Amino acid sequence: MSSAGSTDAQRSFIEQARQAQIIRATIEVLAEQGYGAASFARIARHASISPALITYHFGTKDFLMRGVLATIEERLDDAMAGTDDEPDSYPDALKGMLERFVEHCWSHGEEVSAMTEIRRQARSESLRQAFSSSHDRGTAELVAFIEEGQAHGQFRDTDPALFASVLLVAMGEFSRLRGRSADENRRIAVEWASLFVNAISATTAPRDPGSENDEQDQ
């Protein structure tokens, strides 16, 4: 690699590290002090850097908050995706996804608080569009998953969009349900996930697609 290429790669690495540092500091300020207190000056003091450095990397508060949202949502998506092990059924897949969501929320409380602050307090058009795009994307993915489970006879015949909407609202409010002890948290996590798994799981065994042809031939 040329010297110029090495310098560019090093600069890129340093810039990414600095942006991550700023986003981390912003998350902490949002969680501790709220959206209104998350000025560049306060975030800079929290990160022990110059406010001008935040302006250099993000330009405006809106772009910084969009960067924070993108980071939090990416980490949450990765956590919910889980391992490479294939679940035994669609209800099992939904159960695992929801339990991983719960675990991530409770082990990354600052990120959840920061995301909640932005969604509730931000008023700019660009942030509203970011929320809308994220919501639409999450809804589409969940609807597709539900429809696939229905096609395999493992989810009951309900409106996928309605179920997805109710579940996403519940996920947005879940952080309020934290218990007073680790045991209570585990109980809440299991019961909360079970509510949605039981609500959509088919109550009868999946029908063999070939059975209809067999009956018609008789």
Rank of each mutant, 00 (worst) to 15 (best):
D159S: 11
D159C: 09
D159Y: 06
A161L: 12
L162Q: 02
F163D: 01
F163P: 00
A164I: 05
A164E: 01
A164V: 10
A164L: 06
S165P: 00
S165W: 01
V166Q: 13
V166P: 01
L167V: 13
L167H: 06
L168C: 04
L168H: 10
V169L: 13
A170F: 02
M171E: 03
G172R: 00
G172V: 03
E173H: 07
F174E: 03
S175A: 09
S175H: 04
S175Q: 04
R176A: 11
L177F: 11
L177S: 04
R180E: 15
S181E: 02
S181L: 07
D183S: 12
E184Q: 14
E184N: 11
N185P: 14
N185T: 07
R186H: 09
R187V: 14
R187A: 14
R187I: 15
I188E: 01
A189T: 10
A189H: 07
V190F: 10
V190D: 07
V190W: 09
E191F: 13
W192A: 05
S194T: 13
S194V: 09
L195T: 15
L195N: 14
F196V: 12
V197M: 06
A199Q: 11
A199D: 05
I200L: 10
I200S: 00
S201P: 07
S201G: 09
A202K: 02
A202W: 01
A205C: 02
P206A: 08
P206H: 10
P206K: 08
D208C: 07
P209A: 06
S211G: 00
E212A: 14
E212Q: 07
N213E: 08
N213K: 12
D214P: 00
D214A: 11
D214E: 14
Q216H: 12
Q216E: 13
